[in-house]
Design a protein around this nucleic acid. Structure first.
Lengths: 342, 342
DNA sequence: CTGTTAGCGCGTTCAG
DNA sequence: CTGAACGCGCTAACAG
């Protein structure tokens, strides 16, 4: 709570403050950490000196000694996507309350970058990490090194581990049912070309809805677009041309945005010419005209739950049975969906 | 590059791999770090064992020994704002290339949280930190502890330190001149209630433009809205009612969004009834109708430059003269600005 | 080229 | 209640 130390050159250590206060380093350690017996007077003196000198414990030394650090790692796919940003915000909220530090690293949905991040976390002896997995190796390696891991948003690990996800199947089903209910039969699904459970679930929901409605599944109506593809919009246009859908169901906020741009560029009116429903409600969706019908998901809560799960495991130890929480999405009907033209 | 270790319980150490390979720990260290002489055969053996055992160096031990870690701290105001997200992305890009690790922490534009973040960074013996400062103390303390700091986007420290900012005065001036050129005389400025140089600069530009145009400055036309205020839109509405402006100049992307919502709720047509120009181009601005005229800033490059500056200082040492880079914004004219109604 | 020695800063025994 | 001693894992001398 006070000023910088006199000597900027050498960081002040426990020994420094012990010497200054006329005690041993052990006593200083006990006083500052609050563990163990220390006389009232010694404690006061030590605290005062520490404050005056601007003492900050060397986290490396502490971690080395205790063999466990107080930072939890978080690896997310795309820091600049509002969805992941929301996750991060939720995670940080509860971590902060528990006096843990969050360190964030981004892989760009690239397994190699993810592995690099994981590697630094195990190097830091991070007790646990929260991640939106992109490759199956990451979790396994982490687990193998004794770190707790909770997967959030999607699951990928074969290993049993804590996870919090949303009911993607239901989300996909409700979106599709809504469209079907309006008379659509040629519904295009814009998804991501991965083995992520998010997209698999949404696709399942889509297929279920179709089946329940007696509409045959047509694979030409589903696009699997690589994450971060440069030609995303071109692919969407191609789908538009080749399969002539009357509605788009975009499985994430980015694809919804891309699809929206394509439709506008083509001069297609929403929903008169074509309907659009997104997945994951983000601010622009109520700013455009018409506003976008969307499957909303509790993004912040997803992050908060993940952090809570991690905390629970950190306290409970590895013997706890893995928990997986499933949160519910819900359909928000707005103006971008309507009856298809005759 | 290989599997997890056999024994998940105890992390494998340098001593482990040395023993396994029949050498001393020093030799193992030299082999794995690549520094110092090691025979070809020993090196190969060591590398193989390390790989087989899934060795990952203990970062805490390394940092403790070398008294300096390889992670640079980044503290940003709002992880969920696209502007800051862009900064983070830029920073990470160049840091990654230089083989540094970025750890991100967010203060919520709250000096206390900022201080907490700073504290953990100095505890981690981070060689440097990049920050969008919110309080003046943070940089000073960091500097006092021997860490390099570069301020990005805005400056706040009295201490001389590296920084990269944009020419806010010019941005504010151009935006205002544009509006004036269209005949506006009652231009409201929506800014933030802080001592940030960003807002001060934009305000200066605004005043300069007014003065150059012979339009008297009217303080009732400028709103100073606290960051993260809950009643932001109410304040904007109040300004609308009390000062009857014909144009809004919102000094950041969030205020632009809020203002846009207010205008729509009021049923005001843009630009027929009122014009709107934003600062910081974000995706929704081209999605709404009409698209928003905005002062665009090189966000990613801002981050990249900051990281480059930090790297320069990390290599160059504290004797280098502080550098401050100024990047240029530019006005993008779109449909949200036009002649005021008679 | 290699092993031995020493110490980074801290927390934790264990005697006093 | 306190201090001395030790070691966490790693790297940097320094001899050999």
């Amino acid at each position: 709570m006070t000023m910088a130390p006199e000597s900027p050159l050498r960081p002040v250590t426990l020994a420094d403050i012990a010497r200054e206060a006329g005690t041993s380093a052990s006593t200083a350690s006990r006083a500052l950490s609050g563990r163990g017996y220390v006389s009232e007077s010694a404690r006061d003196r030590l605290l005062a000196v520490a404050d005056r000198l601007g003492y900050v414990p060397n986290a490396s030394a502490q971690t080395l000694k205790k063999r466990r650090s107080r930072v939890v790692g978080v690896v997310l796919s795309a820091l600049d996507n509002q969805f992941y940003a929301g996750l991060a915000a939720g995670i940080e909220q509860v971590l902060r309350e528990a006096n843990y530090q969050m360190v964030l690293v981004g892989d760009n949905s690239d397994p190699a970058e993810e592995l690099a991040g994981v590697r630094t976390f195990i190097a830091m002896r991070t007790p646990g990490v929260i991640m939106t997995p992109v490759g199956a190796d990451a979790s396994r390696i982490l687990l193998g090194h004794g770190a707790a891991v909770v997967e959030v948003d999607r699951r990928l690990s074969d290993e049993p581990c804590d996870a919090v996800v949303i009911d993607n199947e239901r989300g996909g089903r409700e979106a599709t049912m809504h469209l079907v209910g309006q008379g659509h039969r040629r519904i295009a699904l814009l998804g991501v070309d991965t083995d992520w459970t998010t997209d698999a679930g949404r696709l399942n929901g889509y297929r279920t809805a179709l089946k329940n409605s007696g509409i045959p599944f047509d694979r030409r109506l589903v696009a699997s677009i690589p994450v971060r593809a440069l030609d995303t919009e071109a692919r969407i246009e191609a789908l538009l041309d080749s399969a002539s859908p009357t509605a788009f169901f975009a499985a994430n906020n980015e694809l919804a945005e891309r699809a929206w741009h394509v439709l506008r560029r083509r001069g297609l009116r929403i929903p008169t010419d074509i309907s659009l429903v997104g997945f994951d409600d983000v601010p622009w969706m109520v700013m455009v005209d018409p506003p976008i019908t969307v499957v909303d998901q509790p993004t912040l809560e997803l992050g908060r739950s993940a952090a809570r799960l991690l905390l629970r495991r950190l306290n409970g130890g590895p013997t706890l049975a893995p928990a997986v929480e499933v949160l519910q999405p819900h359909l928000v009907i707005r103006g971008s969906t309507g009856f298809p033209r005759a």
